[in-house]
Design a protein around this nucleic acid. Structure first.
Lengths: 339, 339
DNA sequence: ATGAAAGCGCTAACAA
DNA sequence: TTGTTAGCGCTTTCAT
């Protein structure tokens, strides 16, 4: 049970600690004979190099922090995959932190990543304003924001075409012949939802509609918010005949509410939601969605991160990946679609 | 941009490094005057304590590794919450690793947790046999397995009543009057699915049915597996009239397949699935489920972990929490249920 | 190719 | 209460 150090191995292999280090590192040249002795001793002692010591000495780390705002939100899961797959190629281990949309937790996790001197941080900022990334920047730890932009700090970011996505979805509904298109929106302190709202409005105007303020309701970031927003919309004297729902968690709540109201998406009630999740094709009718390239967002974030690590002074880059409208049965008036 | 150390702060505050350390620690007694000087200097320099050095010196860490097998599986998300909420109380930061059901990755993540000398590891072992936890145990890092048990190693574990859960679900279907109940099972190299299969068989026998081997098909751990398994079942000369689906990802695939086949759960085709997810109430009809206390599983794991950290020699504990059958429209023959 | 020795930043005896 | 100092385990010059 005693913990072995590099000295124990050195002793057992009758070499110097430096040699053990070189053997473990696998880079420096060591004679095969000594290398064998070291390997044997290490195995025999069950030696596991202490990375804490190594990190301290080398002033680096192979831990990459990925801080996301809601582990329960499927939006992030494929993004995580994208990050992991690329990071692995760089020898980085991805550690995930969950902030639960809570600013205090975000601050804490960022502080931990800084204190542990991790190799870098990828995160989706809860607020555009506050963010506590200064300690990281001071230590030259690369920081990349995803999904949302940061207002003040000039750091690399990866987002998607939110304006265009919302515009296309809204236009599509209008094209289909829906007349009163509502929008269940998210927190407007984030660039993401402000952009989606802008896209929604922009489409309405282009079609010559006025933007009816009562048709825009806050659906928050949870199912319950989507439920409440939908109820509010259908309590209106003039309820909508179509809805743009701006995230998939809201969509779950919205569907639950519609079900309770005895309503169903389709010709009578157009529905498009952001985020193309597996389940969105399973409900009846299948949901039209604005798909985001989550996996690619994750990959791109790692690319930006490693590039900045290699070249700290390079120009700040803001990548914007494109969304894609997928039309299914929930948003078409006439021809019942296949699948 | 230069990184400050405790010595820089000491210099600026005209005290010794030890005093700075004491002030930062907040435990040892320091005169208010000096404390103020230190705080001011620290803030002015933008000093962030280096936890790597601290961890090395103190031989501990406040990072708790939570290694899960599939970040995309909603089963784990509320479990993660349970872990985080309790861990926070112990001053532990939870870092999540995703293995993607891949043994090599699991080995790697366990090795990283060991090498980084993290405070402990909570993980759902992919295989009962291999697991690479020896380095952790050698360093007295507490290890707790969740969801699945480990065959050889005697470590603390938290699981649920899988036998009972599957038995109840199957019995319920039989009670309702379904005659040919199939089972879409998962990898039998895990205790979890072996137990669920046992529960299924046990119920059938109790009802005097024979266990028809062709009604038990492997649905893997992904949607696609559930889809294939379902198709296989309905290609049988004598297809089932009810299904027990043993995880929620399989259920998504199963529903997709049923839809493609023009079938729907309900009186004609009973369906019960493990894992009570938000979306299971939204499909038509809502799905009957075997709910697992995921949140509690996470909490319990942290409890066991911290107890063992405090008392390394305590008796190994295997907690088993109870599942709950939730009957909805997908598994009842006669009275169309409310909600 | 190998070893000796310094030092990464911090904490905890021990002294004062 | 405060300071001095050794050392956590490793890597990396610098010698040899």
């Amino acid at each position: 049970m005693s913990v072995n150090t590099i000295y124990d191995v050195a002793l057992a292999a009758r070499v110097s600690p430096a040699t053990v280090s070189r053997v473990m590192g696998g880079q420096s040249p060591v004679s095969p004979a000594l290398a064998k002795r070291v390997h044997r001793a290490a195995k025999q002692l069950g030696y596991t190099p202490n990375r804490v010591a190594r990190n301290l000495r080398r002033q680096d780390s192979s831990l990459l922090a990925l801080i996301i705002s809601d582990i329960e939100n499927p939006f992030f899961t494929s993004l995580v995959r994208g990050v992991e797959n690329l990071a692995r190629g760089f020898g980085l281990s991805v550690v995930l932190f969950n902030t639960d949309e809570d600013l205090a937790q975000e601050r804490h996790h960022l502080a931990v990543a800084a204190a542990e001197r991790m190799a870098g941080v990828i995160f989706s900022p809860i607020s555009e304003r506050e963010s506590n990334i200064e300690p990281l920047l001071r230590h030259s730890q690369p920081v990349v924001s995803i999904d949302r932009r940061l207002r003040s700090a000039s750091i690399d970011s990866v987002t998607v075409t939110n304006v265009k996505g919302a515009d296309e979805a809204t236009s599509h509904l209008l094209d289909e012949g829906y007349r009163r298109v509502a929008c269940v929106i998210g927190p407007l302190y984030t660039s993401t939802y402000r952009d989606r709202l802008r896209g929604y409005r922009q489409a309405l105007r282009r079609f010559g509609h006025t933007v009816d303020a009562e048709l825009v309701v806050d659906g928050g970031l949870k199912e319950s918010g989507g439920y409440e927003a939908t109820r509010k919309l259908f309590n209106l004297r003039k309820p909508p005949d179509a809805m743009l729902v701006t995230n998939s968690l809201q969509a779950v709540g919205a569907l639950a509410c519609l079900k309770d109201l005895g309503l169903s998406p389709g010709p009578e009630l157009g529905l498009v939601t952001f985020d193309d999740m597996p389940w969105t094709r399973l409900v009846t009718p299948p949901l039209s969605t604005v798909a985001q390239p989550n996996y690619r967002v994750g990959e791109a974030a790692v690319e930006l991160l490693t590039k900045r690590a290699a070249e700290p002074e390079r120009k700040v880059q803001s990548l914007v990946l494109t969304t894609e409208l997928r039309v299914r049965g929930s948003s078409v008036k006439h021809p019942p679609p296949a699948g």
